[in-house]
């Protein structure tokens, strides 16, 4: 990928395009001059150790992070643009749902924010029912969110993001604390969504999830170490797993200079 910022295109093929993206939090520069793209209709994994800046990058893309400089275009508009609010589904790391409402009441409310008004009532109903089914919580629809297990609550949070069929789904560590069966089911759902044309950006610090992504952004200490497909990464580093590839890249970066350039 080249680092030269190209002139803005009205119909950008990429869902996310970052050039010289820098984020400062307090006195710390959390993201340092990032250049990358996230292709449309694919699953891009955002991987790296805890504290490497994954969540900050995700918050920048969803337009909730302050002090973002450089270029960051999302679905053809600058990140945080008001028209993007109904086109992006965002799942924060901690489940953000109302514990004192049932699963269904949670979804009803967020659906009413996305598509308000009486005229949309039937469509809302349909979206809510489908989102609950997608995350496999139909039997718990009438349970209070606060009474659910951690994994179930994070699936409620995911269901909220699925409402209104967003073009871009940004998921911050959606599979943390889930058992292997659920994790597999969720990844199947992610692939199904990508097949329907949704762009997914999924962060994780579990490297084995990387194998299930179409593309990977490997991050470390606020830098992008690699932006490639899992196959290419393994081939390039002559390793068997993405985890080994990541470690190889970390070692190389440390060997060459103190400051890794992508």
């Amino acid at each position: 990928m080249n680092n030269v910022p190209e002139p803005p295109q009205p119909t950008a093929p990429d869902a996310v395009r970052a050039a010289g993206l820098t984020v400062v939090r307090g006195t710390r520069t959390v993201l340092k001059d990032l250049h990358f793209t996230v292709p449309r209709g694919r699953i891009t994994g955002l991987l790296g150790p805890s504290g490497c800046g994954k969540s900050t990058l995700i918050r920048a893309i969803t337009g909730t992070q302050a002090k973002v400089t450089g270029t960051l275009d999302v679905l053809g508009s600058p990140a945080g643009h008001p028209t993007l609010r109904s086109r992006i589904g965002y799942v924060t790391q901690a489940p953000s749902v109302y514990d004192d409402l049932t699963v269904e009441q949670n979804l009803d409310y967020f659906a009413a924010i996305l598509e308000p008004g009486r005229a949309a009532a039937d469509r809302r109903r349909e979206h809510v029912t489908r989102a609950i089914a997608d995350v496999d919580l139909t039997t718990q629809a009438d349970a209070l969110a606060g009474n659910l297990s951690g994994g179930q609550r994070s699936r409620v949070s995911l269901a909220v993001a699925l409402l209104g069929t967003p073009d871009l789904l940004v998921l911050d560590e959606p599979t943390v604390g889930l058992d292997p069966v659920l994790r597999r089911d969720l990844w199947n759902l992610f692939h199904e969504l990508a097949d329907r044309g949704t762009t997914l950006l999924v962060s994780s610090h579990v490297m084995d999830e990387a194998e299930r992504c179409h593309r990977l952004l490997l991050m470390r200490e606020g830098h992008v170490l690699a932006d490639d497909t899992p196959e290419n990464l393994r081939t390039r580093t002559a390793t068997d797993t993405v985890e080994a590839a990541f470690l190889r890249l970390v070692d190389e970066a440390d060997d060459h200079t103190k400051e890794p350039t992508r």
């Binding site: 909730t64 609010r85 965002y90 967020f110 924010i113 996305l114």
Partner: peptide
């Protein structure tokens, strides 16, 4: 944060 990332 979720609500403010939505069209509210």
């Amino acid at each position: 944060e979720r609500l403010l990332a939505m069209p509210l």
